[in-house]
Structures are given as structure tokens and as C-alpha cells.
């Protein structure tokens, strides 16, 4: 058994045992639940970047998935356990549209269009169709588990963990498959990939489709966990968090989103307990700059010599 396998096993065990740390504290359980949701969300952003497309507006897909799932659950009286997967489909549709627009664009151009798209979507959800989207107040969303159920946070946590593990396995499989090889080829040199016969447009769209589906799923998970959704979900923070997590952990790696989300969440919550507010953002920003300059391959690269 390789050491890398041991690390993954240890991570899995830690994930399973983590609720013990939280004990009876609902606050800590909520933090853990959001952390796991953001591991899924960061995986989604990271996978898109793996194909050479860095989005700065992933909040759009996060939010569309959330709204779609909340609406399906309340209007059609479906269980949230089903609607999260359908709602994510709406995010993937939007992702396909944006992907098609962006197919010729790279780097800053892509970043700008995705960023702009999330602003436009945010404006629409805030100002238009207020009878459907509820305007600034948003809409309520059904909970996964009844609020009166004992240990409901615990169930919720393990449900999220299950999906996070599934997402990790999916990303692992993609990175290992033909698809992943094509993504990496496009990322490293689009022209060369094209010359070698990779259908660049198709693979870029596939990357968008998968990534935005997962982002929508994560958004739906957060929505039903919070039991409400407002246009706040389209805030730039929700677009930037996965970027920060993935870079802190290790860009375009499988373990990056997990390591980054956990470590940065720890720092973030730790600083919160110290009573800091704006300083937290300054520290996170400084961390981001320092990571890019001094440790461009992320915190996960610490484990490299274990391989």
C-alpha cells in the first residue's frame, strides 16, 4: 500500500470522525457542513481550471442550482434529496450556454465574462420576476431533515460527506480518464492539443457542463441546509472562495480543494473567534498572494515527498 493511499484513508477517517470534535455545538456542526459543501463547490471550480478555464463567476451556477432546487421542492412538492440533482441540471444548462459563449476566450477574457455573467444573473434575480425569485428577501427552501429531528445536523453532515466523497471519486476518475488527459492537454497548450486531434471545443464544453453541474449541486445543498436562499448567493465572495480554497490547497490537483477548504476554513473560523472582522479578509488576501508567489503548487505539495 502506497503512502498516498494511507493519506487518503486518514483523510476519510478524519472526515467520518470530525463531528466528534463539534460535539453538541450546532454552530460547529454548521461550520463543518458548509465546509464539506464548499469542498464539493471547490472541486467544481478546480475541475474547470484543470481544463484551462478559470471562472471568476462560479457563484452564478452555485446560485442557479440553489434557486432551481428550492423552487422545484416547494412548487412541485418534491423531496430536496431529489430536487438538488434536478436543480443542478439547470446550473449545467446555464453553464453550457456560458461555455459556448466563452469557447474562444481564455484567461482574463474568460474570467471577465464569467464574472459579468454572475453580476447579470444576480441583477435579474434581485430585480426581475420577484413573484418567483422573491426579490431581495429570496425564497424559503425545504430542509433536508425536519428542524425538530434530533441529531439532524449529524445526518446532514454525513449526507454532505457522502456527496463530497462521490464528487472526489468522480473528479479522480475524470482526471485519470481520456477526458482528463484531453483537459490537461488543452490547459497546457490549446493549439498543440488541437493539432494532435483533440476536439477542443467539445472538451471545453464538457468541462463547463460537469463543473457547473457540480457547482449547482453544491449551491442546492447550501440552500436546503440554510432553508432559504436570497440573491446574496450571487455575491462575489461566493465566486472567489473556491478560487482561494483551490489555490491554497493546490491548483488543478485532486487533493487541493480538500486541503485548501479545510485549512482556510480553520484559519477563517479561528480568526473569527479572535474577534477579527476586516482583518480576516486582509489575512486571507495576503495568504493568497503569498501562496501564488512562494508556493504556487499549494499546501498539498507538502505531501509530495510522500508519494
Amino acid at each position: 500500500m502506497k503512502r498516498a493511499h494511507l493519506l487518503w484513508a486518514a483523510a476519510l477517517l478524519a472526515g467520518l470522525l470530525l463531528p466528534l470534535v463539534a460535539g453538541d455545538s450546532p454552530y460547529l456542526m454548521k461550520v463543518l457542513i458548509i465546509m464539506v459543501i464548499f469542498i464539493i463547490y471547490t472541486h467544481s471550480w478546480n475541475l474547470l481550471t484543470y481544463s484551462g478555464q478559470a471562472s471568476l463567476g462560479h457563484a452564478a451556477f452555485f446560485g442557479i442550482g440553489g434557486y432551481a432546487s428550492a423552487l422545484l421542492a416547494s412548487r412541485l412538492e418534491l423531496s430536496p434529496f431529489i430536487t438538488i440533482f434536478i436543480g443542478a441540471g439547470f446550473a449545467a444548462l446555464a453553464g453550457l450556454l456560458v461555455g459556448a459563449i466563452c469557447v474562444r476566450l481564455r484567461e482574463w477574457f474568460l474570467a471577465m465574462v464569467t464574472f459579468g455573467f454572475s453580476i447579470i444573473i444576480g441583477t435579474i434575480f434581485l430585480n426581475q420576476f420577484t413573484d418567483i425569485f422573491g426579490g431581495v428577501d429570496g425564497i424559503p427552501a425545504r430542509r433536508f431533515f425536519s428542524a425538530t429531528l434530533e441529531h439532524r445536523y449529524l445526518y446532514e453532515y454525513y449526507f454532505m460527506l457522502l456527496l463530497a466523497i462521490a464528487t472526489t471519486l468522480l473528479v479522480y476518475w475524470i482526471m485519470r480518464s481520456r477526458l482528463g488527459v484531453a483537459f490537461a492537454a488543452i490547459r497546457e497548450n490549446e493549439l498543440e492539443a488541437k493539432v494532435l486531434g483533440v476536439d477542443v471545443v467539445r472538451y471545453k464544453l464538457v468541462a463547463f457542463l460537469i463543473s457547473t453541474y457540480i457547482a449547482g449541486l453544491a449551491g442546492a445543498l447550501q440552500t436546503h441546509s440554510f432553508a432559504y436562499i436570497t440573491p446574496e448567493i450571487y455575491s462575489v465572495h461566493n465566486s472567489f472562495w473556491p478560487v482561494i480554497y483551490a489555490i491554497a490547497g493546490g491548483l488543478a490537483t485532486l487533493e487541493g480543494p480538500i486541503v485548501g477548504t479545510v485549512v482556510v476554513t480553520l484559519i477563517w473560523e479561528g480568526l473569527k473567534n479572535l474577534g477579527l472582522s476586516f482583518e480576516r479578509f486582509v489575512i486571507i488576501g495576503a495568504l493568497l498572494v503569498a501562496m501564488v508567489i512562494f508556493k504556487p503548487r499549494g499546501l498539498a505539495s507538502i505531501f509530495d515527498r510522500w508519494r
Binding site: 479578509f281 486571507i284 493568497l288 498572494v289 501564488v292
Partner: peptide, 28 residues
Amino acid sequence: RPIMGTGKLNEIFVSLGLIYILQNGVAF
């Protein structure tokens, strides 16, 4: 300067960090 020539994505990420630092530094 430290990231010049290391890829366009790094420039985006460094600016992102600067946005956080400057906005919240002023707010602080």
C-alpha cells in the same frame, strides 16, 4: 514582479488577493 512570466492565471489570482487586502485594509 515575483510572478512575472509564470502564467496569466497567477496574475489574476494575485490581483484577487490584492483586492481583498486593499478593500479590507481600508475598511479596517
